[in-house]
Design a binder for these strands. Sequence first.
DNA 1: GAGCTTCCCTAACAAGTGTTTGGTAGGTTA
DNA 2: TAACCTACCAAACACTTGTTAGGGAAGCTC
Lengths: 223, 223
Amino acid sequence: MPNSTRTRASTGNSAKKSEKKTTVSPSPERRRELLSTAAEVFAAQGYNATTVRRIADEAGMLAGSLYYHFDSKESMVDEILSTFLDELWAGYEAVLGAGLGPRETVEALVTESFREIDRHRAAVAIYQKESKHLSAQPRFGYLTESQRRFERAWLGALERGVAEGVFRADLDIRLAYRFLRDTVWVAASWYRPGGQHSPEEIARQYLSMVLDGITPRERQERP
Amino acid sequence: MPNSTRTRASTGNSAKKSEKKTTVSPSPERRRELLSTAAEVFAAQGYNATTVRRIADEAGMLAGSLYYHFDSKESMVDEILSTFLDELWAGYEAVLGAGLGPRETVEALVTESFREIDRHRAAVAIYQKESKHLSAQPRFGYLTESQRRFERAWLGALERGVAEGVFRADLDIRLAYRFLRDTVWVAASWYRPGGQHSPEEIARQYLSMVLDGITPRERQERP
DNA sequence: GAGCTTCCCTAACAAGTGTTTGGTAGGTTA
DNA sequence: TAACCTACCAAACACTTGTTAGGGAAGCTC
């Protein structure tokens, strides 16, 4: 029993357009358990390198038994990624709709991102590694759409910030966007929940570097 | 003929411990051509998702024919990654041995990194995606070793910088290291050679953000 | 206890995988 | 012309892959 007890209560929506075949009527809690182990293996080995037999092994059952809960290996990643993105965007929209200034928006987005990494480490890692070639398939079109929303959100905050003078005007704004986006999300590749730093602490340090740079400033004045 | 003419002259060492089977005596130039196309496919689709038939297709020949030049799919990635790392470390050692100050060392390392991305985009992308689970195999132990050298080089420069006061003392140095390392290398996922920005230009912008931050400084004074 | 549901197992399938073996067209050397 | 080498093809091999079909054990309801 490698998986042991895993009782994370997450309010995933899952089952989007799932009235097509649905094996029988599996319990949602068991589904989430299995998805959690699957996500762990996917994140560690990569999606294509992971066999359904390996997942079943880790879950303490045989490969065929997985198909009582899911109708394909593909629908497993699908559900993993879509539930993650749903929760992510719930958090993001809350930030974007709060009427914050550009700098505060960036700070809140970064902090929220690290919280999501803390909660969905495996899903984030999968998203980073696989989204590029998964999004080629029409089934995963929401990955591309999510990327666009991402870009709008970040670019918007950066542009407003430059316009209001709280961000430097001499920077390539698209480069800065990619810079921010990447620096935040790659953290999922080394971050381990329960480590020394809390997500908020990591966010604080990251923001410190991104906003002020790693060289010392003469006077550190912030109202 | 999808590959057309590709005549990049690189002084790869390749063929490390290759006196074990070596199919026959393939010409080194053809090897490099094929490795170039293979690297392109690996970077685009991922190593495991790439079939040897796909590589052969892209090279305009049949799958079995590849085995005249290489003895396995694995040895293809091996050669791609090891030749890249060899060249990378040649450049890095040149920087590290130049007796530069901490800030100049960081600047030079970043610039050199973007030059390597420009030259070995595909290899860097592969390295990023696959090194984690490739390094589990003893054959790819040099990946782990390279990672350690990386850490030593960057951490050393950062520590010296903090000691000399050219870098902020209030930052978690390991976080800063991962921050720097990641921000530089993830660029390989979106960088396209021949684009708007030269490697040096991108390095300049990145360094500007990393060193000074994205918020404006009151006085910009640098001797 | 009959019937039903939930959850998993056993055993197989077809397709796709990396790899091998033997052959051969074309050029170079003798 | 004969022998040889390079670079590829054609066809198959053994194995792994995701997936399916049928069955059965435990627990609940009536």
